[in-house]
């Protein structure tokens, strides 16, 4: 479980993706795949191609760790829940594999792992964070475009980018309060 910050407050994690530093090399996707043994044909983290109507930059796309996560709301077994530090995780032992969370996620961030018999997704490498390490994607990013921010830490520079509005969430209009924030150029 989550540990405490130096000031004693709970961690409140968020991921900051600086698209102005992203070169779309997919190193984060590969590192994630290796670290989490993601099966072929699925992804926990990927680079979404730029679209004509939206962003002109490639976007790292993964679970948005929503504060009001539809997957958490619909999960009948409470196998999916949001930790106090903001990371949305799946307790494999409680999951029946009904796939309702996959249906419910508007970001399409979940996949069904046939071998495990349960849905899976990015958990921000929670085990590594708990051990004081950074997630695999953040460690690997060659352009230093990725950072884990701690909103509970008033001195965290990446959290300041979120507070100032420089980093913004994807599709906030859906009302799920995502915890992945993007910095976009002019």
């Amino acid at each position: 479980m989550s540990t405490l910050t130096k000031s004693g407050a709970r961690h409140q994690y968020a991921l900051v993706v600086d698209t102005t530093r992203c070169i779309g090399c997919e190193a984060c996707s590969v590192a994630c795949r290796v670290e989490n043994e993601v099966p072929d044909g699925h992804w926990r983290s990927r680079i979404a191609p730029p679209t004509s109507g939206g962003s002109k930059a490639p976007l790292k796309w993964s679970c948005m760790h929503c504060a009001d996560a539809p997957c958490v709301q619909v999960c009948p077994t409470k196998a999916t829940y949001r930790r106090t530090d903001g990371i949305v995780v799946i307790v494999a032992d409680k999951c029946v594999g009904c796939k309702y969370c996959i249906v419910a996620c508007p970001y399409g961030a979940r996949y069904f792992d046939d071998k495990k018999g349960i849905p899976d997704k990015c958990d921000l490498c929670a085990g590594m964070l708990d051990a004081g390490l950074k997630p695999a994607c953040v460690q690997t990013c060659v352009g230093r475009a990725l950072a884990v921010a701690d909103l509970a830490d008033p001195h965290d520079k990446d959290a300041a980018r979120i507070r100032s509005g420089e980093a913004r969430p994807l599709h906030p209009e859906l009302g799920t309060k995502p915890s992945v924030y993007y910095v976009v150029g002019e």
């Binding site: 679209t51 109507g53 508007p106 994807l170 993007y182 976009v184």
Partner: peptide
């Protein structure tokens, strides 16, 4: 058809 079919910022 899902609500998000591509990124938008």
């Amino acid at each position: 058809v899902p609500v998000i079919i591509g990124p938008a910022l």
